[in-house]
Design a protein around this nucleic acid. Structure first.
Lengths: 178, 178
DNA sequence: CGTCTCCATGTGATTTTATAACATTTAGAG
DNA sequence: CTCTAAATGTTATAAAATCACATGGAGACG
């Protein structure tokens, strides 16, 4: 299966794929296998329990390949035979986020699988305001204006939320036509 | 009244002020007057209605000088004689945010008065995970890794959310002692 | 001055997102 | 085998945000 490193909220299977400009095409089935294996190895190394719900939650995020709300995740997990109450989803997602297998998109109150599992990084996201697709890249908080400000004030940065909102290539093109 | 350009969530009047390292001391009463006047002028110039609720909401944010949740704002507005239902607060806050008089801190689901009203800018925030204080600075989205990624992919950035989470100077110092 | 229209305000109701509290189960240590 | 700590499941509730609709006031226009 071919797909693009871009996530779209409400795209049915019959819709055309979004314009891949700048978003690397890759083999999705393979990337799921790889990501799950990476997570499994990380857990084994660190004495973490990669339990069935946690594994399934990660698989769902990878399969969907888009930002999923906690309650959407809950529905999926429940369909798969897990519990039906919010904490089931929130706990699995918390585990994935804490261990770097997924990220929370604050702007959307939603979660995406990490595009670079294993690699320690400060993620940054580009969020399309039109189609809600999300692409992950990385930022260097220490460099740049915020790093300077932190050094100047004595603020110790532990984590950064960097989310750019705008138009993805395909929606920008559509907007131009109108 | 002297205060610091730093906002703290749960600091009673009797608590000592936070360490001002890196946070400019300034005359707070004056900064409120200036900010309100700036907003008023901007509205006059642009045919916007700077109504009583909107003005009061801005004054409250400025006075509090910290990130305020929508429901906290609602309580304050209600105390001042305005309506008691959530839309009252959400609408006033939306107006302030849309016009650059306030910003939403996504990470906290809360709002702060803009520290640079009038000046068009991409705000960035430093949020203390210990005391919830928030300091505003600015970022340059076009430069830096995210700008590069956007250009490379054809993503059009319209707005950025940049929030650094970590320890403010005073909480970092306290942590060192422990 | 009237009146029309648009926007703002106010309210009740509901939806969406997230956490608290506690019982039960299960994996792994010893 | 048993003990312990962590994980799972549940009910209940809190917190954040929006919907839908009635009322009211400011300004445009005649």
């Amino acid at each position: 299966m071919k797909c693009y490193n871009m996530t779209s909220k409400s795209r049915s299977n019959s819709d055309p794929l979004p314009d891949p400009v700048g978003f690397e095409a890759h083999d999705h089935a393979d990337c799921i296998v790889t990501a799950v294996a990476t997570a499994e190895a990380h857990c084994a190394r660190n004495g973490l329990r990669f339990t069935p719900v946690r594994r399934k939650a990660l698989e769902i995020l990878l399969q969907e390949h888009r930002a999923l709300g906690a309650y959407e995740m809950l529905d999926r997990l429940h369909e798969e035979g897990f519990g039906s109450q919010p904490p089931v989803a929130y706990r699995a997602l918390e585990f994935l986020v804490d261990n770097g297998f997924a990220h929370k998109i604050e702007r959307l109150n939603a979660f995406v699988a990490c595009a670079r599992p294993g690699a320690s990084h400060s993620p940054a996201f580009m969020i399309c305001r039109d189609c809600d697709s999300v692409a992950e890249t990385h930022s260097s908080p220490a460099r740049g204006a915020i790093g300077d400000a932190a050094r100047a004030t004595g603020f110790q940065i532990e984590r950064t939320v960097v989310e750019a909102v705008g138009l993805c290539p395909s929606c920008a093109e559509r907007a131009d036509h109108a």
